[in-house]
Nucleic acid binder design. Structure first.
Lengths: 122, 122
DNA sequence: CAGTATCCTTTACGATACTG
DNA sequence: CAGTATCGTAAAGGATACTG
């Protein structure tokens, strides 16, 4: 067993695994990382790619991902100024894992739908 | 490209991939699935395994996972009654993916910590 | 034992307006 | 263009008490 891979019990609050996961498993973080999968995007492009996300929330999540080292933020002087966001190596690693989750989710969504309907029918 | 694997843009609200991910990427759902990885657990055992979780929240998340088909709930008459929770096949699939995320998180947490410190120092 | 019910606080998020 | 600031709402979660 890899040391530190059991985020259950004991550790709890100061569990480093939980601290990492908390910042990358959220809805917005996932969508941002996936959107940047094919290369750098500007703030506006990213916002359009995700579709439904406010500027405030997008900014918050980008700052968080930047702080933890998953992406870089590059400002190019203007006017108008443009800001490019790009995945780091670690961001790419994360993306690979999230991509697997997405593919699995795509394959499973029908089964989930059927389970829900059966459950709700009772 | 696998059809339906791009949760960004368009789809947005009624994207089936997002609907699946929303129910399995949360903190509690992840911890529950991982805790059940080594076999069925009773409600109380599960609660102790996770450590910090209230009964209300644990129950809510267990119902959600049961509804979507990731685990089964089995009541054994008492007294006292005992309720066993166990992963389904689909739950095991999910667990495999989450386990990979946890292992990656364990390997990455130091790099993340260093990134944060460097970022905050500026 | 395995919940449910109630109340309350915190966090996430949306909407909107403003700025270098 | 890429934010920041402010306000208000809604969902998540904690604490506690109660029950078959």
């Amino acid at each position: 067993m890899v040391k530190g891979t059991t985020p259950t019990n004991e550790n709890v609050d100061n569990c480093p695994v939980r601290q990492v996961l908390a910042k990358v498993t959220g809805k917005w973080q996932t969508l941002i990382v996936l959107a940047l999968g094919d290369g750098a995007l500007r703030f506006g492009e990213l916002k359009r790619a995700i579709g439904d996300v406010t500027q405030r929330v997008l900014t918050e999540n980008l700052r968080s991902l930047e702080r933890d080292g998953y992406l870089t933020r590059t400002v190019k002087a203007g006017p108008p100024v443009s800001v490019h966001y790009e995945l780091t190596e670690m961001g790419q690693e994360l993306r690979v894992l999230q991509k697997k989750m997405v593919i699995w989710a795509a394959e499973s969504h029908l089964a989930v739908k059927q389970n829900r309907e059966a459950y709700d029918a009772v």
